[in-house]
């Protein structure tokens, strides 16, 4: 029963939503176009959504900068180490906490112990002082250990584990399997999609974090990429990229260079995005709207 009015609405709706989606990627496309354009075209305002006077100079300039690669390296180190630690600790906390109280006595206490950290924070300064006192400043551990337990993910996984049928572990216990075996052989294989979701989330979190790098690393060569970009692109600290010689290069400008760096800064996210997208919807739904 489709009325004429509804047909008009459908067309209007399609056009509106398509424009809305374009609005979401348009800024990114514009910056991408800028990064491949010549400096004169960029400053003359000729670049819209397609490169004008196509050139790779900006990328060549960035690629020649040791600082850029150094921070890229720190970022990858952080993402891999941080992601691994997040994964292990999430699983190792979620399994015991998904047991019944009679199976694991401190369960309720520990659940509250974790939950408390979600509702009350010590604040920025005490957090900084604790990390400083532990002498973690300027080490990769400062970026990884304070975020080692993603409490929200732990809760998500506890909830998932609890809705798995209990009969399986009973049967496994009868067969003499201990908790390690049950976790490894039954729970992990059964929760791969959820694990993929939370792992991807933690990888993205580590890649995108910039503030901790900025304040916990004293020397810029320890900056992860996002912190590096923060100083170069946002604070416009040109000394970092050593662009005193920029004037002499006509092909690139501050603007095209920034655009290239911005694009490189989100490239890994764009690459994993298709995988990410496959899983996160499921993850959000499991975590958000139960009951």
């Amino acid at each position: 029963m489709e009325t004429k009015g509804y047909k008009y609405f459908t067309w209007f709706n399609y056009i509106f939503l398509i424009l809305l989606s374009l609005l979401c990627i348009f800024p990114l496309v514009h910056v991408l176009a800028l990064s491949f354009s010549s400096s004169s075209a960029a400053s003359a305002g000729l670049v819209k959504l397609w490169p004008v006077e196509f050139t790779l100079s900006s990328y060549q300039y960035v690629a020649a900068k040791a600082e850029f690669w150094q921070s890229m390296f720190v970022s990858f180190q952080r993402v891999i180490l941080g992601g691994l630690i997040n994964f292990l600790l999430t699983v190792l906390l979620a399994y015991p906490l998904s047991r019944e109280t009679k199976q694991f006595k401190p369960r309720t206490f520990l659940a509250w112990f974790l939950f408390m950290t979600m509702i009350f924070h010590g604040g920025l300064i005490p957090w900084y002082i604790v990390i400083k006192e532990l002498q973690l400043l300027d080490t990769i551990w400062a970026l990884v250990l304070p975020n080692a337990v993603p409490v929200f993910n732990v809760i998500l996984l506890i909830n998932f584990f609890r809705q798995l049928p209990k009969e399986m572990d009973e049967a496994a216990h009868v067969d003499g399997a201990g908790h390690w075996t049950i976790l490894w052989k039954i729970y992990i294989p059964l929760s791969l999609p959820v694990l993929a979701t939370i792992t991807l989330f933690s990888l993205v979190m580590h890649w995108n974090s910039w503030f901790d790098g900025l304040i916990l690393m004293n020397s810029p060569e320890n900056y992860p990429l996002q912190s590096f970009l923060q100083t170069v692109v946002i604070q416009r600290d040109l000394s970092m990229i050593g662009s005193s010689d920029l004037e002499s290069l006509s092909e690139i400008s501050d603007r095209t260079l920034k655009s290239a760096q911005i694009f490189l800064g989100c490239l890994p996210i764009l690459i994993v995005y298709p995988f990410l997208q496959k899983y996160f919807v499921k993850g959000i739904v499991i975590g958000g709207v139960k009951g």
């Binding site: 005490p126 002082i129 990390i131």
Partner: peptide, 8 residues
């Protein structure tokens, strides 16, 4: 890293 800052 969470309770330490609370003491702080």
């Amino acid at each position: 890293f969470s309770y330490g800052p609370m003491v702080g």
